[in-house]
């Protein structure tokens, strides 16, 4: 029933999430801003959800563009965040 497989880009603060979202969207990647999953961080801010299969691509894009982020973490299969 639930075949979602996502990852999330964690950032320092919401402004950074917007920058990450903007960059990945420009590269044609589907994203969604979601609350930071509690199991990954106690931060109460936002992170950027991406398709699990795009983790490497996202990392490369962010690094190439000097876009600060804390890390990219896979979510368990079926979890939306």
């Amino acid at each position: 029933m639930n075949s979602h497989h996502y990852a999330v880009v964690l950032v320092f603060a919401t402004s950074y999430a917007i920058r990450v979202e903007q960059l990945l969207n420009h590269a044609g990647m589907e994203t969604r801003l979601i609350p930071v999953p509690r199991q990954l961080s106690s931060d109460c801010g936002m992170c950027v959800r991406i398709p699990h299969g795009k983790m490497d691509c996202a990392r490369a894009l962010l690094e190439e563009n000097g876009c600060a982020f804390e890390g990219i973490y896979p979510l368990p299969p079926g979890s939306r965040g």
Partner: peptide
């Protein structure tokens, strides 16, 4: 509220602030 909460309106509010920057 921009920068608080994680729902779609908070995200839109944050986008607006980022665009202002």
């Amino acid at each position: 509220n921009p920068g608080r909460s994680g729902h779609q309106l908070a995200a839109e509010s944050s986008r607006m602030v980022y665009t202002a920057r």
